[in-house]
Nucleic acid binder design. Structure first.
Lengths: 221, 221
DNA sequence: GTCTATAAATAGATAGAC
DNA sequence: GTCTATCTATTTATAGAC
């Protein structure tokens, strides 16, 4: 699916602040890194398509084009594979959040991020994890690169939310945490997929519909 | 969890219009029916707690207190179990929708239904199915009692949505189908669970928060 | 219809040669 | 590190006695 205006930048090389420090790599190590990047990218796509439970390690190996045993030389478990994919998208999110123009109004910053996450989902790059998988949650909670990214993004968005509430552009009655959760939830909102399957609207139209209903509500203004 | 004002009525006996006609049952058949109701209720709870993939048939049998083989005498597959649970909630939804006072404004009717679905989720009675499970979808699409219920509810809600848009209480710019999808999506919105885990708000407060953000939007009015 | 016991299939993970 | 072949555990589903 060709992404036009809303295409999220994919800064593979950029290292968002707070992540593990990059190290000089030998040629051999760069090859290894590239291979693992290809694996994680495949996992990311499969997670977006089928979700964690339905994705099998055999599928991943077949899609990457290597044997399953080789895959386990790179990642020790299925959870680790999914975790690596989550770290990847979290890095992208961090990178995007830090590219949002400083001068913009807080509300517009939040809308930019919401549009970016929705574009990510519509382009089939948003991994979907089950909310109730203990082993996966345990792995994620033991992945500092993920947790740090999540905290960084949450802090930034939280600051924008409070600023927007201070100026009265976001409803001050809503607890900031509820607004933050709503932003995260919209990133994996099934409404996007439903509308996409309907085939009546372009990606951009779908994004604007959901942005409108999310920020302005269903009732008329 | 005690439900107070928002407790959804559970009309086990009521038969919403459009479902298979009820038949006079012998005592033996009534016992069978009761057993199956207990099974479906258990499945419903487990589906709400863990989701379809994480729920095992062994768990269901253990929770009901019968052998697994006995379970398969009642329902031919795991998909059929989940399907029966979906038919159950769809019947409840149908019944509730038909109890909504006729004289109410369309917008208020929609809010009533939204509140009901959210209360259902908060009380741990909303089955959660994976969006991408083909075998399960096939079973559901082959279950007339479910499809008819879904169509009935969708038609009713769709009528209210169009009426609300005609009077200008719901944003006429939004396609009715998008509004309908949004209503359905809010019924399984993860924001509810997040806020519940936070422990800072009562069920009623959580429902009103999400109702507010859904209908009035995140931005101030 | 209910049970115990078991089949059959799937999927995560590993052994060991190269 | 990559491969083939295999192990092991889990889980859906069924056979057959009562």
């Amino acid at each position: 699916m060709p992404q036009t205006q809303l295409s999220p930048p994919t800064p593979q090389s950029a290292t968002p602040p707070g992540t593990s420090a990059p190290v000089r790599l030998s040629f051999r190590e760069q090859m290894l890194q590239a291979r693992e990047d290809a694996i994680v990218q495949t996992v990311n796509r499969l997670l977006a398509e089928k979700g964690f439970d339905a994705m099998t390690v055999d599928e991943v190996a077949a899609a990457v084009g290597i044997a399953k045993a080789s895959l386990y030389k790179h990642f020790p478990s299925k959870e680790a594979l999914a975790s690596a994919a989550m770290v990847r998208v979290m890095r992208q999110a961090q990178a995007f959040v830090h590219t949002v123009p400083e001068g913009l109004a807080p509300l517009d910053k939040l809308k930019m991020v919401a549009r970016w996450t929705m574009a990510l989902q519509l382009s089939g790059e948003m991994p979907s994890l089950p909310s109730h998988n203990s082993s996966l949650r345990a792995t994620l909670m033991d992945t500092p690169d993920y947790l740090n990214g999540l905290m960084d993004v949450s802090d930034t968005l939280g600051g924008w939310i409070e600023a927007a509430q201070a100026t009265g552009s976001i409803n001050p009655q809503l607890p900031p945490i509820a607004v933050l959760y709503t932003m995260y939830a919209r990133a994996c909102d099934p409404v996007l997929e439903f509308l996409q399957l309907g085939g009546q609207h372009s990606h951009d139209e779908i994004v604007e519909l959901v942005i409108s209903s999310c920020f302005d509500g269903l009732t008329a203004r």
